[in-house]
Design a protein around this nucleic acid. Sequence first.
RNA 1: CGGGGCGUGGCGCAGCCCGGUAGCGCGCUUGGUCUGGGACCAAGAAGUCGAGAGUUCAAAUCUCUCCGCCCCGACCA
Length: 570
Amino acid sequence: MRQSKLFGRTLREAPAEAQTPGHRLMLRAAIARPLAAGLYTWLPLGFRVQKKVEQIIREEQDRIGAQEMEMPVLTPAETWKQTGRWDALEPITFRTKDHNGREFMVSYTHEEFVHLHAMQEIQSYKQLPQIVYHFQSKGRDEARPRAGLLRVREFVMKDAYSFDADQAGLEKSYAAEFGAYERTFQRMGLDAISVESDTGAMGGDVAHEFQVLTEVGEDRIAVCSNCDYRANLEKATRSVRRDGFEALDKAPEPSEIRTPGATSIEALQALLKRPPEAFLKTVLLTDARGTVVAVVLPGDREVNEAKLRKILGTSEVKFANDGQFAAAGGVPGFVGPVGLKARVLIDSSLDRRAFIAGANKKDTHLQNVVIGRDFRGEEVDVHDVREGDHCPRCKTGTLTIKRGVEVGNIFAYGTYYSDKMRATFVAEDGTQKPFVGGSYGIGVGRAVQTIIETHHDEKGIVWPPQVAPYHAHVLALPVNDADVRATAESLVAELEKRGIEVLYDDRDETAGVKFADADLIGIPLRVTVSKRNLKENLAELKLRSATDAEMVALAGGADRIADIVGSWPR
RNA sequence: CGGGGCGUGGCGCAGCCCGGUAGCGCGCUUGGUCUGGGACCAAGAAGUCGAGAGUUCAAAUCUCUCCGCCCCGACCA
């Protein structure tokens, strides 16, 4: 490819809106361009990367026996209504109607439709297991697209769907996808770790996210210093040292203490000279329907909203308003679980010992409040894990919180969809049984930008060879020297004959511009054919990832380049 | 959705407070000198100042409304 003809030019300065290093480089190197908030066009260079990433994903899916197919972007409303997701997804999806008024959704994902096809194509357990997948655009009307390709409103996702006859089969399919994901990300140069994740509104039990740890990520991941425990903060737990049991019997009955104006844990600490763990924090919240729930936590902990939403089975959690406070018998700033008229959730990390809690009475708290004796509630894990907490798995390590980009996820949902859609097959015993399924997604564009975020230096992108837009970048210096041009062009032709992908910088630019652009675009091998080197019949080879260059004889140049390119992982 | 910021040639920005008819750098075009790390000289082209309405003799500048984009948070299988 002649660079003088390349559609897409490099930018010396990045547009002001680009914030993350990957976003800036993606724009500067002419990988992609914005069309509107969260909508991007792949330019030719970026599109080549996208196709290579897709191909790696494809090969690893094929390796585990998954079959590629393709389902439409536009999907009919009726099927979504069968599973209740037409309404549930309303706030974050794009919708349209045809000329007859029939409703469609720009598909958010394709579980419903793959089930529809599975019930048509699979009648017998003998046809199971199956995994199918496709690469398809998804529409998500995100409230806040951000950081270039990391969060967008339309993107190509590889989504795979497994169908098994039973739970044991699902576990095998899940494990196969897990392995495929590990190989897939490794091959494209992403150091993705698997973390336990929340299954969210989808139901189901087991889910893993594949996270690439980087500061630009928007997810927060708890990572153990000692073992392999890694979990999204939406799900992470901790090991709690219980040391207050003996105090239980000795605690006297609760009694009131005057705490004028002490409406926060901090104020109480200051007033009573006690550590934050001495207090119970009680928060009044409501679910989407407005039902009030009281969450009781250690004084130094916060509610984890994701955990709470899952416990309540609701799509949103809000703070209770004044009327709801009054109805529950709570006084803002002095809320406590004793005598409260609301559903009470007790965080599972709380010790069985005497606490100080709000008295539901202005300027008053209760001391010697004991869980189980003075109030009751459901014991659940609803608190936020934080840096320094003890690992729930090995108990000895401590947790650190890191940021991550979720490049893929795998999710065993079981019969969640097949039950609702009556998607069944005939089992060995002759009865109709629902498919047991899982879904497995990878965001292609997000993966591409994450590769840039994690593979660059101050000069530009440093593509892993497997996904680089071209293998070699041939620079002619200067291009208007007839000998240089003829030599460079015959080298390019010879390389292309060997199947090497070459970007040929034939632009009439100075050396500085060409080198700077080569560094910016980040093609793994740079080949310089110059007037200077030509005198000695040499060409210069330099790996983008290396600091030193190598001089080779022009005569054997193509062989040497082919060796280098051939030595790269595929 | 809450909070904040920004919209001026393709990109980065100044001008706005204090109204007088738009400027700088990069890029682009033509000619020339150059050619191993973002060259130099000369001559050019290119802007409904996000949109609409209002105030005024006069609006990029003041007022109002709307739109778009970015950041933080919320939200996001």
